[in-house]
Design a binder for these strands. Sequence first.
DNA 1: TCCATTTGCACAATCGATTGTGCATGGTGA
DNA 2: TCACCATGCACAATCGATTGTGCAAATGGA
Lengths: 349, 349
Amino acid sequence: MNGPTRKNTIYDIAKLCGTSPSAVSAVLSGNWSKRRIRESTVLLIRKIAAEQGYSINMQARGLRQARSGLAGMIIPLHKNRFFSSWSQSFGKLARERGLCPVIASTLRNPAEENRIVETLISYAVDSIFIAGATDPDALEALCDAANLPHVYIDLPGKNAPSVVTNNFHGAELLSRTILRDLPHVADPARSKPYFFAGSVTDYATAQRVAGFRSVVEENGARVNDDQIIQCGYSPNSATLAITALCERIGGLPAGLFVNSFTVLEGMMSHFVKVPPEDFSSSVIGCFYYDPFAAFLQFPVYMVWQNSSQLITRAYELLESGVTDPTIIEVEPDLISPRTIHQSPLSELG
Amino acid sequence: MNGPTRKNTIYDIAKLCGTSPSAVSAVLSGNWSKRRIRESTVLLIRKIAAEQGYSINMQARGLRQARSGLAGMIIPLHKNRFFSSWSQSFGKLARERGLCPVIASTLRNPAEENRIVETLISYAVDSIFIAGATDPDALEALCDAANLPHVYIDLPGKNAPSVVTNNFHGAELLSRTILRDLPHVADPARSKPYFFAGSVTDYATAQRVAGFRSVVEENGARVNDDQIIQCGYSPNSATLAITALCERIGGLPAGLFVNSFTVLEGMMSHFVKVPPEDFSSSVIGCFYYDPFAAFLQFPVYMVWQNSSQLITRAYELLESGVTDPTIIEVEPDLISPRTIHQSPLSELG
DNA sequence: TCCATTTGCACAATCGATTGTGCATGGTGA
DNA sequence: TCACCATGCACAATCGATTGTGCAAATGGA
């Protein structure tokens, strides 16, 4: 509208109104009553500011107030249904609080994780949500040095509060279902449930393996080492791993506990070569929910992790000022095959 | 390490080094040679700054330089494979340029779109990528008033450059495949291909319908209005729409062109009730790629949109200083059923 | 030896907001 | 009439960086 040359400031508005910049600031920042600005002045300043399309410079405000209004979050990846549902909730809650969300992905690269947290600190974010960090302790040190409130999501940190999915319960739920439906197979090697783990050194995976183990033992059986298969998280290695297993035991196992979405994705490349009828002697569960996985050629039980709860609890922790390493657990849900799960965000598709 | 009370500034570092703050600034911002700072001084300042864990205050720098180093992007939704692959590329390229990505989701709400762009302007982002806006012109006005460079993604704007998928070509590719494989069905109502459109007022959808129509007419047939079904984008309404169509024409149509991921998701609720053998007289294509959709109970042809190219081109436009309403088109690829497409990002799973 | 450069910084203004303080002005009560 | 208080602002310092300018000391050439 005005001049494309420069954005206007409270000084410009003040000149146009015939008032001082401090009056403009007081009016536009909402504390004009504290400063006893006359109502007519308030209206005038508001009118002129609106006419001029004034927009506050948050850098200047942040500098003065030592509070940026930015809410930081790091996630491993945007391009992932799981993490992106966290960002979605995070962004929503940030906006509701008048904050501007800054969500950066680290690509699971520890060096990049550090750099990104440093960047967020440079921009003076008021808090950080750390989700799926590979080296939480290093980030912890950075945040502590900068005196920056932070909360861990899904992977607990040492000296700060965390919100995690109750992986043990979720794994129990899924394992019980698998064992309940476990078809009878004569071959002992094929009659057992197998756990495709990605990597058991992950916090979440370790908890899930524990839940799986507990349910198997509840049923009077035992879990041998060969039932826990660590194939990493890349689809390719998952393809190789399931192919190798099926060759070794002479077919699909009676039960499959798949720990991750990418592992299931990789298995698909093997499954398409399996005759459909073979799936009738196999029950598959995945610690992950996907609407298409719900409609594959064979039934898949899934676990849905409540991302909205996860983020809501994390904000609550932050706002309650907790800094102890409290851990809050959120319960996941079991989703039956051929079910479209209606998450609170699903209508946004 | 030091005091948890306050972050240290160039003034603190200067005091510790016995130099002036301007020397510290020059050294840490990299233009110490321009300012003829002695090398020994450079090393000293760097050493002390590192020891103290100094981190620059980007608010102060941005205020002074009138350049924040923030790269803004708005998308409708994080929780969507499609948009999140854009954010992934956007974040990567921003980081490579030393920028901090700020990606906000608008939930397709025009009011929120406006508020978010205003917020980004307040934070003085250096540029904005506008993806999937519902009201591009309103955002255009805001950006123009703030003199802010911006590029449109996937949906062209009026007065600024845009990068879009070549929806016409993509639709031609998919339509040709559908028509090539179209099974012979006696019933004329069932023998035709149907286009499930979401809403034809969308720019992208209109282009795709045109591509579909062009291929059908190339084959000497015509597209009747009842072949273009506008069912919105919610899974629920898609379920109802496909159910209604199948009832009306007495079964699955010979060809189905599904315009969107969420529409396909909604159709699944109907498809699971369809006997598997019925799919043999039907060919399905979807303008969207999903690894699980690649392995459904029936074959689905898919179109993969090159998100990495889309974003790369957009950065190129921005950096070349183009402000005309140029439109750059990126070619999509056809993906056959039972194929896992290896996108440049897929190894990150 | 002396003037002219060059070197190596320090000083102070500046970006645009917030905020502590101070000061006219007007009204009120004694 | 005068002291006194409330009202309605304006002034100036401040946040932490950048940057134009100035100036002493060192260096070099004649």
